[in-house]
Simulated scan of single mutants.
Amino acid sequence: MKKYVYPDNGKFIYKTKSGSYHILKKKRVDGKIITKFYGAFKDYNDAIRHRDKCVEGNWDMSLVYSNPMKFIQKRGKRYHIQRRGKFYGAYSNVIDAMNERDLLVKYDWDIEKICECHDDSISGISIFKRRV
């Protein structure tokens, strides 16, 4: 497997002989190099998006989804966030719903923590801010 270098910075992305792209992070532990696998993709652009999400989440896989719609359901013209039967909000566009879902995951679904840190909301108008 060789590192795939593109002008848009292919760091952590490796191309296999079969043509797929693997996201691998190598680090040295006790003098040994440990390689951790973070996903495989057929499309290079999908690999870039996933790698960027991994970097943004400090390589915490609980913040990265292979299913970008996880916990989000489309109902009519709105996107609802639900987990284990609990409703967390409805949004008019999928990007806002994904951003709020990511915020929920980041704070382990604890609305109190999110209320304390509501400036962390990407959309700036978090449903949790309105509940306080």
Rank of each mutant, 00 (worst) to 15 (best):
N9R: 14
N9W: 13
N9H: 13
F12T: 01
I13W: 03
Y14D: 07
K15A: 09
T16P: 02
T16I: 05
K17G: 04
K17P: 07
K17V: 07
K17T: 10
S18P: 04
S18Y: 15
G19C: 09
Y21V: 08
Y21R: 04
H22W: 09
I23L: 05
I23T: 02
L24P: 01
K27M: 08
K27H: 13
R28I: 14
R28Y: 11
R28H: 12
V29R: 14
G31K: 15
I34E: 07
T35N: 09
T35I: 14
K36H: 11
F37D: 10
Y38L: 11
Y38G: 06
G39N: 10
G39Q: 08
F41H: 15
K42F: 13
D43L: 08
Y44M: 14
Y44C: 05
D46Y: 07
D46F: 04
D46R: 09
A47S: 09
A47P: 03
A47Q: 02
I48W: 02
R49E: 14
R49T: 15
R51F: 09
D52Q: 11
V55W: 04
V55R: 07
V55P: 03
G57T: 14
N58C: 13
W59Y: 11
W59D: 08
D60C: 10
D60T: 11
S62Q: 08
S62A: 06
V64I: 15
Y65T: 14
S66H: 08
P68V: 12
P68Y: 07
M69F: 13
K70T: 12
K70F: 06
K70G: 03
I72Q: 00
I72R: 00
G76I: 01
G76L: 02
K77I: 04
R78L: 06
H80K: 05
H80D: 05
H80N: 09
I81L: 00
Q82V: 12
Q82P: 04
A90G: 13
S92R: 12
N93P: 05
V94D: 01
I95D: 08
D96T: 02
A97S: 03
M98F: 03
M98H: 02
M98I: 07
M98C: 06
E100A: 00
E100D: 05
E100K: 00
E100R: 01
R101L: 01
D102V: 03
D102W: 01
L103I: 00
L104G: 00
V105H: 02
V105M: 07
V105T: 15
K106N: 02
K106R: 15
K106A: 03
K106V: 02
